[in-house]
């Protein structure tokens, strides 16, 4: 093989540099164009396929992202698939996608998403337990927001006058 990088490889490398640059700047409309350049010459590039899904979701194109995942059989993208379903208001399916994924124990991203799905499904008691577990085991920059969510769960539980208001302090 020649010592020079072949043109296709150089094209892919340069496109990835753009994906990286625009991704870091959160300019996903530009990033997706660079991703499409990669997929134009390497349609099975798994990293590029993953990038395209993330860009579509970041651009709120949930339906398109979901179809893209299914069409390309991107079975490893459980989080992205379930998140699309969550945003498309298909909560039962979103929960099933996670629970059928046989990832145990759930990594933080799937655990967070699953808890939000439980909230939308109004399964508040499970949701409360799940948030308590996340809060106990997480230290990140979103602890205040997570406590706000926990309060929202408690508020919904408090609507039922037959039950005690859970202690979330």
């Amino acid at each position: 093989m020649s010592k020079d990088t072949n043109p296709k490889e150089a094209q892919i490398k340069s496109a990835y540099a753009d994906v990286n640059k625009y991704g870091n700047n959160r300019e996903y409309d530009k990033a997706i164009k660079a991703v499409n350049r990669i997929l134009g010459v390497a349609p099975d590039d798994q990293t590029a396929l993953h990038c395209k899904v993330v860009c579509l979701v970041q651009l709120s194109k949930f339906e398109e992202a979901h179809k893209f995942i299914e069409k390309n059989r991107l079975t490893s993208l459980i989080f992205e698939k379930s998140y699309c379903e969550y945003r498309l208001n298909r909560q039962q399916q979103a929960l099933k996608t996670i629970d059928d994924g046989i990832v145990q124990p759930l990594p933080p991203n799937l655990k967070e998403l699953r808890t939000q799905i439980l909230y939308r499904l109004e399964r508040y008691e499970e949701c409360l337990d799940s948030y308590k577990d996340i809060i106990k085991n997480t230290s990140d920059e979103y602890e205040d927001e997570r406590r706000t969510n926990l309060s929202a769960v408690a508020a919904n539980l408090a609507v039922d006058k037959n039950k005690d208001v859970p202690d979330v302090t």
């Binding site: 991704g23 993953h50 990038c51 989080f79 992205e80 967070e112 979103y142 927001e145």
Partner: peptide, 15 residues
């Protein structure tokens, strides 16, 4: 008020 915190995990893969 209820925040979508799962969205924060949606990132590009390592390049």
């Amino acid at each position: 008020l209820f925040f979508d915190l799962a969205m924060n995990y949606l990132e590009l893969p390592s390049l």
